[in-house]
Amino acid sequence: MLRDWQLATVAAIRDETPSVRTIAFSLPQWTGHLAGQHVDVRLTTDDGYQAERSYSIASPSGRTALIEITVERIADGEVSPFLTAQLALGDTIELRGPLGGYFTWRPDNPAPLMLIAGGSGIVPLMSMLRTRTKAANRPPARLLYSSRQFEEIIYRSELDRLVTTNDGFSLNTALTRGAPANWSGETRRVDGDMLAKYTFPAAQAPHNFVCGPTSFVETVADRLVALGHQENAIKTERFGPTGEKR
């Protein structure tokens, strides 16, 4: 694990939704990462003021030449407006990582993989799905993804493609602020009934990863415990409204 700041060069930029952008960085000293890990990004202004934020890695695990982060623009944020609007190809920024060993998943883990995302909480879970897709033996996996609106679903086309591969992955999406006319998914916030319907039963001993805003994660984790899951089979990552994470 590299604990010092290193210079990352922007190698590619891709818009995911009107307010979410994926940035690929080239890192000469990158030692590889696990799915679920994050990096810290540090910006320094001309007068020396520094701001640090954590962003989950979106790309699959391993010793890759590039890593990707996916960033949601927070209107009054200090870092995300810069990353999503001003940072350009070839620019360099300071980055530290990979970081965190708790909220991680390894592809040799045979337990059913249950992923539950709220909004941009999908990012580290997408790294897990992409890592799974590259693996020789893929455990069954399900994603329950809550978004405000259809247009805000991050990685929508890639997720739809993953479903069609029929490799044991299934996707259920909930929209909380209105849905298109032909929408066949859920149209309310994730609750206990929805979790009972779409998650692996506790008897199958799945590993559950929950990521999203604090209130979302608290609700989901509580309901999973109520459904009989062991607490150590529920891994959580939360971000507050002012945390500007991801």
Binding site: D40, S215, D222, E237
Partner: peptide, 27 residues
């Protein structure tokens, strides 16, 4: 469970606090 929407969690201190340790502190 404690309800407070302002908080995030210990995952986020892996960098700022973890740099003082020789192991991953989030586990």
């Amino acid at each position: 469970m404690i309800e407070d929407a302002r908080a995030s969690d210990g995952n986020a201190v892996a960098g700022p606090l973890g740099r003082f340790f020789a192991f991953d502190i989030t586990r």
